[in-house]
Design a protein around this nucleic acid. Sequence first.
DNA 1: GATGAATGAGATTTCATTCAT
DNA 2: AATGAATGAAATCTCATTCAT
Lengths: 205, 205, 205, 205
Amino acid sequence: MAQLSRKEQASATREKLLITAKNLFAEMGYHGTPVRAITRQIQKGDGILYHYFPGGKQEIMSVLLRESFEHRVQEIKQLTNETIEHLPLRDALLVILGKINELFLDDLDLMRILFRENELFDLEEAKQLSVLMSEQVESIAEFLRRRHARGEIRFMNFTFAARQLLSIWMQHSFSCIVGIKVVTAPDVSAYLEEMVDFTVSLWQA
Amino acid sequence: MAQLSRKEQASATREKLLITAKNLFAEMGYHGTPVRAITRQIQKGDGILYHYFPGGKQEIMSVLLRESFEHRVQEIKQLTNETIEHLPLRDALLVILGKINELFLDDLDLMRILFRENELFDLEEAKQLSVLMSEQVESIAEFLRRRHARGEIRFMNFTFAARQLLSIWMQHSFSCIVGIKVVTAPDVSAYLEEMVDFTVSLWQA
Amino acid sequence: MAQLSRKEQASATREKLLITAKNLFAEMGYHGTPVRAITRQIQKGDGILYHYFPGGKQEIMSVLLRESFEHRVQEIKQLTNETIEHLPLRDALLVILGKINELFLDDLDLMRILFRENELFDLEEAKQLSVLMSEQVESIAEFLRRRHARGEIRFMNFTFAARQLLSIWMQHSFSCIVGIKVVTAPDVSAYLEEMVDFTVSLWQA
Amino acid sequence: MAQLSRKEQASATREKLLITAKNLFAEMGYHGTPVRAITRQIQKGDGILYHYFPGGKQEIMSVLLRESFEHRVQEIKQLTNETIEHLPLRDALLVILGKINELFLDDLDLMRILFRENELFDLEEAKQLSVLMSEQVESIAEFLRRRHARGEIRFMNFTFAARQLLSIWMQHSFSCIVGIKVVTAPDVSAYLEEMVDFTVSLWQA
DNA sequence: GATGAATGAGATTTCATTCAT
DNA sequence: AATGAATGAAATCTCATTCAT
């Protein structure tokens, strides 16, 4: 292992704290994770967490949410339509949903916590997520409009259509998170595909 | 006030415990509600809760969920299609969703807790809720089939159509519960109506 | 040992907490006394203190001060001049100062704490003590006036004279408390007597 | 600003530490002041305090007390009677008390701390203060003797008289420090003057 | 001279639960 | 049926101090 400068080591410790906290919060919940569990896992003293996050447990959670959110925003904004413009409609939609899904699954644990303990944190995170979803709706509506221009789907309220599509995905995701499902089928991965095909078929008629 | 028999008194205390617990859990969360807050509000000693619910805090929460769930099941099962059979399609669907909504809003707080602390309680409740939703999907699909038979909507995969409809509602409800919304519009009450109309219009084409 | 009813035992525990806290605070200071030291000394669990004093360490200190103060007020008010009316002046004054001294020495430890940590507690206690001292000044002035009427001392501003007397005592007491003395003589007990005699001699001239 | 040599810089840092510590101790108490508050205020690292004061927090407090005390001793010793020898008695006494008062008020905060935490530090400081006061008593007694020789006051035990005078001042000062006053009058500044006049009048009779 | 990462003992407090009465 | 005294593990957080750099 390379010799690390003090600054590098400090930043590494901070990072370890964040990662460990995220994992433990995911595994045992925010309330279920004692601060000690975090510090002990990185084999440091009890106080180290307060050295990097003077606000304690709450602050480390806040930082986790903020960082995850910022990453998500950046990724979704980069989801340019160019890469999907030439794909068949259903494939394009699946790519979009898949990409969104990926982003959420990426930090599914964090989402889970945000949902579960959502009163703990100032609702800022939730609000930002709302805005993000709204923007996404409009972006998809725009995409559908272009497909209509190409004659692939009929004319309709494209914003509503986009919402319909996102509903399917969101309901599916929320269900996974909270453990209540509409579909008790074993093959949950195919669910989205099925529903997208069905929806597109309605749009084409 | 009439003198209560011992049995009635006991039962009254048990009931008071349940109601008080539900209110406090809703207000301050399950973790945020000390057992003492419950017993003190009904002006009884600390131990009384364990007399009626030997399993303690967890048990009282379980009972609350179970009772609420049983009530919900009963109500939804009574949601006979007969009463809506003669209504226009979009009205009938709105009645169905409205009824489901009503049932959930009825104990929105409990739902919130079920979502938030869903790993605390054995997932039995969540599973039952899943089954309930699946049954509901089939029931709606059946209803749509009948409407198709009447020539009101075209032929399609009615199960998928029912899922699509429920997705809209579920996404909406979950969003309310966790505070993340796709629509930041001020008039949220009209949202469901709009989306149902849109969906029905697709089914009719 | 007689069998105690539950209520008696509870009250005994509360009392034990107060006494133990007082002793430990006196010995090691308020800050220097962990709550655990108190509960361990009475061989009870950590939480018992919070059962009787929900406000914790601060509350137990407050209660100690309040109770001590109430006792002191009561005693000083009962210090009727009747019992000293017939004594020679210097003896009467020594009785008064001795009585006051006794009252303070009674809870010298508490006084020490009140002085030392006086910013901790709302200044109510200190204010009340001030009022008490002022009243005492007037009471002594009144007594001196009567002695003047009897021709034992000359005419003068009796309030000032009373202050002068109390100054001697207070300075002496404060000195004992904080450990700074004007007199480094070994026989501190004779100090007050000497000074009273000196002062009276001035009044008589 | 002139470039400071290393020695000057070091000494400046040490001085900054002392001044900052004194202010913070005064403001928040010894226990209430974390070492970090001091080092952060002078924008240095955590360890710097231990560089200049290896004994840590305790040592810096000790040094503060010692320096303040040395300054006080020096000043009081310079309080030569020559400057007051020609003044009227009451004015001369007021000058003496005023000078002593000034010296104490100068570092009232430090006095306050010395009183509050007097068991923390070895009692050396308190003892020295005691000796200082005793010497002062004798010095005043000597002064009174000279005034008696001039026929301004009658013969009496001048040591006792000096004690009586200092009592008035000490009680007043202590009262200010701990917040317990004999006089609740609004004009506290006149208190000393009144009492001195009263005492002198007794000496003259 | 100076830094600040790291320590870890220890402090206060909470609270679900038990059980003798 | 009811009480509430007592428990004690556990949780969060503070802070004087050390020491490698």
